[in-house]
């Protein structure tokens, strides 16, 4: 295998997959950091987003990309609604109960997808797409657009968190919740804003995975482990960390086929998760440990 083949067969798919993981992991790290619990319904919310985009596309008969913003908006609303209905009343009880509630929500979201859209796999677009060559690197259009979309999302989110008043309030809440409250930040607003952003990110992750792979009712559940591995690897609460972690997990999964049978790709994330918890639980960029 030449070097360029290695890049094209392992690194390119790894970066594409990893950037999708990153979008999901950023949401996980935000919930972990600001609301302080592991959100187990994250993957199934992504599934829901992917299917909403599918229906939108069917409705307008257009490119799947029109489905992305619609799905992001719907998923944001769903996430806020889920919080109000199922998580909010557990606010003052031990956080682990919210984790449990989120596992129940995962199951509920998935069964809604299964009832509404069925259990069979589907895709946004049929047919084989040939990749184009850019300086020897083979990229399909959808892969290129995926990378662009992820870059846009990450840059936009970073700008929001660094520059805007409410973005700073979210960071403050993640950093020191008591002091944020003493400074007059309303916890409920930050919580709602966080869920809106996280829901939108979920939908984006689900859409991009569906675009580069396929859609089925279990797709999001299988995203859960790599997303958590990425978030913890990068450092809980760190957006840049989740991006880095996502890319590492994605590339590691694509490289794992060199030494492991293909069906164990999914085990890579698990191994990374256990290793990072063992040697550096704060993650690469020194995040939080709950």
């Amino acid at each position: 295998m030449t070097f360029i083949d290695f890049i094209n067969f392992h690194i390119v798919p790894g970066v594409v997959l990893g950037s999708i993981y990153a979008v999901g992991a950023i949401g996980i790290t935000m919930v972990f950091g600001i609301l302080r619990f592991a959100h187990l319904a994250h993957g199934d919310l992504a599934t829901m987003g992917a299917f909403i985009a599918l229906s939108t596309m069917g409705l307008f008969g257009a490119s799947p990309w029109v489905g992305l913003p619609v799905a992001m908006i719907f998923a944001a609303a769903i996430a806020v609604g889920i919080d109000k209905t199922f998580y909010d009343y557990l606010r003052d009880r031990p956080k682990i109960l919210t984790v449990m509630a989120s596992l129940g929500v995962a199951l509920m979201l998935r069964s809604v997808v299964q009832v509404v859209w069925g259990v069979d796999s589907t895709t946004y677009q049929r047919g084989i797409v040939r990749p184009d060559e850019y300086f020897g690197i083979l990229l399909r259009d959808r892969e290129l657009y995926t990378l662009l979309a992820v870059a846009t999302i990450v840059i936009g989110l970073e700008a929001f968190l660094r520059k805007s008043k409410w973005g700073k309030a979210m960071r403050a809440m993640s950093d020191n919740p008591d002091l944020a409250r003493l400074s007059g930040v309303d916890n409920r607003h930050v919580t709602m804003l966080t869920w809106a952003i996280v829901g939108a990110l979920c939908a984006a992750a689900g859409f991009l995975l569906g675009l580069n792979n396929e859609l089925n009712s279990m797709m999001g559940w299988h995203l859960l482990l790599p997303m958590f591995a990425a978030a913890i690897l990068g450092g809980v609460g760190r957006v840049e960390g989740a991006l880095l972690g996502g890319l590492i997990v994605g590339i590691a999964e694509e490289l794992s086929v060199l030494i492991l049978p293909g069906q164990y790709k999914a085990a890579t994330a698990f191994v990374i998760l256990l290793l990072i918890l063992l040697v550096r639980p704060r993650g690469l960029l020194n995040g939080k440990v709950l």
Binding site: D175, N176, A180, G184
Partner: peptide
């Protein structure tokens, strides 16, 4: 706070992962 009382706790009284200036901005949040 809005009435004009501000409080500096004994411990954990800054946002460690924010810059000095951002800390001041958070102080002026309201």
């Amino acid at each position: 706070v809005k009435r004009g009382v501000c409080y500096v706790p004994q411990v954990d009284n800054v946002f460690r992962e924010m810059t000095v200036h951002e800390n001041f901005e958070m102080g002026a949040f309201l």
